[in-house]
Design a protein around this nucleic acid. Sequence first.
DNA 1: TGAAATGTTGGGGCG
DNA 2: ACGCCCCAACATTTC
Length: 483
Amino acid sequence: MAEKKTHLRILVWLRRALRVQDNTPLWNAVHDAEELIPAVCLQDSAAYRDDTPRRRFISQSLYDLDRKLTEAGSALIVLAGVPSQAIPAAAQRFGVEAVYAATVYDPVGCAHDTRIRSSLSKQGVRWATFKDIVVCERNEVMTRAGLPFKVFTPFKNAWLERLAQAPGVLPRVRTIRTPRVSSAARLSDMCPLLPPAPEPGGEKAALKRLRDFIAGSVATYRDRRDFLGVDGTSRLSAHLSHGTISIRQVLWAAVEAKESADAKGRQNTDTFISELIWREFYYHILGNFPRVIKGPFREDFDALVWSENKKHFAAWCEGRTGYPVVDAAMRQLASEGWMHNRARMIVASFLTKDLHLSWQWGERYFFEQLMDADIASNNGGWQWTAGTGTDASPWFRIFNPVMQGERFDPDGAYVRRYVPELQRLPSESIHKPWMMSRADQEQYGVVVDKTYPAPIIDHAAEREVTLALYKHPGRTHQRLRHA
DNA sequence: TGAAATGTTGGGGCG
DNA sequence: ACGCCCCAACATTTC
């Protein structure tokens, strides 16, 4: 029994929604239109040829999506160019009555959308966006005074009070009626099928990740998630940022897992849900205070003066700072396009508070390298560590890279995996190889300053510099020299 | 979702 | 037995 359709033909722009299950714009388009055209917009074909983990993840996800759409009787249409031009042009070419897409919240995306809306309206085409990448929009959770939250815990409490009204999971779209369209770019021309990413892309891989996590590690998430050498996290971040799975699928799977868990398992699962709420919180902050993209949320830190030492920055990026846990983490990022969350905090603290380099340099580098690059979480995390954000870590909270390594990688497994030249060091020394005698170093196959770098800075000294720098933002500290 | 400095306490060695 | 010192262990404060 066919319902009355409101539109003849809709273009569905599948940005951040590379899936057929629980896909809000796609689901609505199937309901509203006789025919629909599922499309993605790829800006720069050259970029998609770069063989990086991130590109591999996207490539694999696009091909998986194309296969699923084909099975549903459709196909993935690839548009080339910047969205603000490509979307209106495609709407015209395909003769659609409306364009549907997921709502986005970053200033650049919003600016594109404004131009798209205006172009489309001149063409007489309806533009509709749907809440899809968050559970709660930026104005759905507010203080009693009707203002946005700036502190996580009250935000979380208010968010959880609304949990019962949170949207559920939509059924999978099984059949799609698509018109015969030509003249779109071919997926294989724009984006070659690259080898599998370290974290396999695509909706199928995402669902497997979720199933495995819910059946396994979620029950020990709180207790194990901080250990660098342990596979105790969900590893769903890249899937969430590209929309190969929806936040609702993950949330409701976790909520359901709680029901059959014992008290301990429920606590562990609550910690995981709390991490999902951190993601929501940073979208709440981004939506309500978009200036965080430009600079510190706390405007008193606008005046902070940063080092511009390019050699230090290169050493950080390339994982040769001489601090094993930092180097392991940065090499994990470069080789896998992913980094353990605890390691993200450690290297972020090191960049900002040991090297005195701007958190914005780190933010940009992470965004380029991470498979899971998410504008809100990335910005929120960096501002948290730098102490410049809402509800941020206090600026004087400075991680000691040796202590963090000893606490969260006690047997050195993480360092050994990514810094093989330290492979044979005993665990007592693996986080501070420079403390060993030269004879011991040689016995264990390492010579600090030859086969592994000496620490590029002295943590205790740079900690003092940071305390002085943050105490009086704007005052140039004499120790802040640009080598 | 720190770490270091400083303060307090209590047990043991020792004159 | 007593006071004194030392220092580890823990608690509190500070950055």
